[in-house]
Write a protein that binds this DNA or RNA. Structure first.
Lengths: 338, 338
DNA sequence: TTGTAGGCGTTATCAG
DNA sequence: CTGATAACGCCTACAA
């Protein structure tokens, strides 16, 4: 009485529609290569049986998965959310699906995830930043997996990228900060090791600082993880430095949010007692109080362009892509003139 | 001179190690079933050739992917981030991988993603909430795909779940709010349609409100999307209501963040002029100003338990799981006594 | 336009 | 313990 759960296959559909599996396959993939009449019959069978193509089998046979993988350092905060969302949507419009995984900022884990994604048949990869073991690039090369790096730019490297220059962006912001009269800067940087965005941003500050004739030794820097709480703790530490910084430049908006929150806890007014700046211009930046002065990154544009770039690479309409996007400084209440 | 990019297969490894593909396969999967000596030889070959198993082929042959899929309504904010992270980690420890996709709060899209994940051979699924078309459950049933629902509880339904009672949780919070003297409540609810968490939370407020003898008509409710900006706009609208609410209860912390930010923009002090409450207790809740009174949800615990539950289902150590987790009210500065 | 048949890379059954 | 060999579900020349 109880039938085994019927999971229809191509063959079942073919039988039901009285055609060959090849024809069903064509109906599903290259519709034009089949008569309207038979197509109709086939589709009806597909509907009736509730057929869903087996993805693994398809990918294996076609050597093509129409899937691209993305590995981001974290999903815990919104840093990559908007860009990835746009990436996903653009990809979808181009007929591709997205697989996301997070490396928790660990190169080892990232390498593992890359292998996993490739083993799954990803047609292409989106990675964040360019700093990683050469072996990883070799691996990708060897299998000729098209890869686009985002959230950074590396015109001198061999890899395709769609991103922006973290260093010069932060340099500009630092220029602005210094122009506004600040000459005691505290820095809360993300962890530098293995993170080119973090190191680029820090380098940008140093560069500007020295260009203005200051001594690099007078720059107080704390390196910590990209978490609100870490930002708060780092801020607290920086406030014990003598002489006290007049501005705290943070490696991203998440750290800055923590800094602002701690400022309030310590009874310090921002920006009257101390200014704070961020980087990324995530949604939150406009909603903390005071709103964050930060570097605006065109997340969505970056996502969309990266999607198109990657698909171009995959479909061999291009062999290397280098797109450097512009960023801009957004002045909001958290940065005050001295 | 230029060799075609060598992507080694099981067979290549077998040949290199002078054994059969079956043996190589065993080395990779059930190590105990092969001599240490041959295993060594095989592993050496694996290393040397840089072999990575083809996931699709493996899944197809084994009818098992050791992959579980999760579909969350959104990745744009941190609502699900912590829980999912914990879920992922627990899964990893159990030998499974996680595939995540986002449905953008659209049931149609969710259904599509479910099919996609199943077509990819997911061994099990994690879904948020229980309200969805019966057809979806039928589909899952038919293929006997173990599924766990999270972030909600539905003791009366057939599905397994690991979650909490949104309605009673919000009911408790409302009780607290009313006890503190508030009798003009404005509500910013998430979109109810197709979202049992949102409707449960709203129902909880209504229930408490009426239980305290108030008229349901005096409850001003705005339904909007779960975005900071939407929360801000809704708050602005609620402030035009006469008589003005003394407290704004929000469907989640994201909405509450928007509300608080708009309060400041309007020159209203929280909680002196108006109180605000949230739900979820995401990280942000502790860092906005004033910190949010909210409902604490055990995100990580939920993620971990859900992972174990799902694997138990998959490995047939259980056939149905119902785990209702406790939540608690967290009183912080955003809620004042009247 | 449609059908036939071989192959994609693994696992699993069954002998040896 | 190890080796053939048949699936697994689908795509794609090649033929008809």
């Amino acid at each position: 009485m109880s039938a085994p759960p019927p999971i229809p296959t191509l063959e079942d559909v073919a039988r039901a529609a009285r055609v060959s599996t090849a024809t069903v396959s064509r109906c599903l993939n290259e519709q034009q290569k089949v008569t309207a009449k038979t197509r109709e019959r086939v589709m009806e069978a597909v509907e009736r049986l509730g057929y869903t193509p087996n993805f693994n089998a398809r990918a294996m046979a076609a050597k093509r998965s129409y899937t691209i993988g993305a590995i981001i350092p974290t999903m815990e905060n919104a840093i990559f959310a908007r860009g990835l969302q746009a990436f996903q949507e653009a990809l979808y419009d181009l007929g591709y699906n997205l697989l996301v995984s997070s490396s928790a900022y660990q190169p080892k884990l990232e390498a593992e995830q890359i292998r996993a994604l490739v083993a799954r048949g990803a047609d292409g990869l989106l990675l964040i930043g360019y700093e990683r073991d050469q072996a990883v690039y070799d691996y990708l090369d060897r299998r000729s997996i098209p890869t686009v790096l985002a959230w950074a730019s590396s015109p001198d490297k061999a890899q395709s990228f769609v991103g922006f220059d973290n260093q010069s962006a932060m340099h500009s912001l630092a220029d602005k900060v210094i122009e506004m009269g600040h000459c005691r800067i505290g820095v809360i940087s993300g962890v530098i090791e293995g993170n080119d965005r973090a190191s680029g941003r820090l380098a940008g500050i140093k560069e500007s600082w020295q260009a203005h004739g200051f001594d690099i030794k007078d720059l107080v820097i704390i390196e910590t993880q990209y978490e609100i709480e870490s930002g708060a703790k780092a801020f607290e530490q920086l406030m014990t430095v003598d002489p006290k910084p007049t501005v705290i430049m943070c490696g991203n908006d998440v750290l800055a949010t923590g800094a602002i929150s701690m400022a309030r806890e310590l009874g310090l007014r921002v920006p009257d007692d101390v200014s704070v700046t961020g980087f990324d211009d995530i949604e939150l930046a406009r909603y903390v109080w005071p709103p964050l002065t930060t570097v605006h990154v065109p997340h969505q544009q970056m996502g969309r362009i990266a999607a198109r770039a990657l698909v171009d690479l995959i479909e061999k309409r291009a062999t290397k892509i280098s797109r450097e996007l512009g960023v801009s400084i957004v002045l909001r209440g958290s940065l005050g003139r001295l």
